[in-house]
Write a protein that binds this DNA or RNA. Sequence first.
DNA 1: TCGGAATAGTACCATGCGGTACATTAACTT
DNA 2: AAGTTAATGTACCGCATGGTACTATTCCGA
Lengths: 230, 230
Amino acid sequence: MKAKTSREATRKPAARQGKSARGRPPTHEVATRAENLLDIATDVFLDQGFKGASMSEIARRAGASKQTLYARYPSKAALFAALLERKAAHLFEAIGPLGEGRGLRDTLIHCGTEMLDLILSKDARGVHRVVIAECNEFPELGEIFWDRGPGRVRAMLASYLRAQQKLGNIDCGEPEQAVEVFLGLLVSGASLRAWLGLPPTFARTPVQRKAWVHFAADTFLSAMEANARR
Amino acid sequence: MKAKTSREATRKPAARQGKSARGRPPTHEVATRAENLLDIATDVFLDQGFKGASMSEIARRAGASKQTLYARYPSKAALFAALLERKAAHLFEAIGPLGEGRGLRDTLIHCGTEMLDLILSKDARGVHRVVIAECNEFPELGEIFWDRGPGRVRAMLASYLRAQQKLGNIDCGEPEQAVEVFLGLLVSGASLRAWLGLPPTFARTPVQRKAWVHFAADTFLSAMEANARR
DNA sequence: TCGGAATAGTACCATGCGGTACATTAACTT
DNA sequence: AAGTTAATGTACCGCATGGTACTATTCCGA
């Protein structure tokens, strides 16, 4: 087994271009610079992992000094926590409110599409990988991520299904269970493969993805009907 | 965020107890000692991750010297690869041949039970965590693991379903898709939570696990029936 | 205008790592 | 009995890391 050559010193100052860089930065840049620093840090952590990422490298790539880094975040772990929380929330908030003028099936399809795209996206893969890797050493990480991300989506879907059930549009038993069924058959194989760095089996092209989402929605709906009949 | 105090020097010589330890070991012990070394290494890697594990610690905990370690495996990566391959195969081979005197539903339930127990087991969680964490740096890791583990189970299930389909016992369309549906709704939420170090939502107790497996099997079967009718 | 605040740059420290070298000891082989 | 092999223990090398100290520089507010 041989490691890929990562850490390929990609010079990218990205802040204070041209200027002599030293000295207090102008006030109007300071917010941008802070954001940029977090962005760079996110990049580095997401593809090198917590232990693999180095503070010096982050500073260098952000065009900042280590002192500035440590002025903003007291430790590597703190920086990591800050950026992960931001990223997790930001990623999953793409899956907006459900319903919104759509019928039941269309809502499932819409939400399913976004969910599948999300799971297969590079950023989401990175976040999952890092969180899964490090949640043993930092147990609260798993909880934070679940609440901001997958858990939030599940809660939204469950409350949507509960509402639809009250309206008589579906008979799905415990909505929480039904959500697990839907998301499970939508996303499970694809997500494991994605986190292992392998291409998806059934959702490689956009067309295939669309077909799979439709298939999942319909399978789910008929399973719920059948369950209701039993 | 504060790290848990890992690396808690748990002294456990585990080899050459009592004896002065130095010098060539008696021949009848040598196989045992090699096995033991791999076991210890597995423990360490599985809960500290690749980068977190240290060769010195493995040697110390195995009651061996670093030289012996490097005599058997030329590098840290090689040791890691060896143990991971062994562990992945060993874990998933618990899910034996399908069918075997059972009917369709019973086979699903049997296989489902083993799969769910496996996913929730501490060892499987460790393996998944480590592989997912490191497959970015060692891309072949993901493939090896998939082939030995989740992929193998999926292939077995698919060929079983295909056979059942030929016998007219089920009408599930593409067996590979059907497998994804079944395993998805069986295992998806539980596995993500497990890898994040969180307790399962629906399969906490053995009783709940059994109920969930039955629910998954029945939901799957009725979904397939409904699909067939369409 | 001047003093403090925020920054980059650089050097540094202690630690721990993967991996090697060397001397020593005990079991096997001939 | 002698020599070879496989161990342990310990010291070590070079390097990278997280984190700190210090200086020189620039902006800002009083």
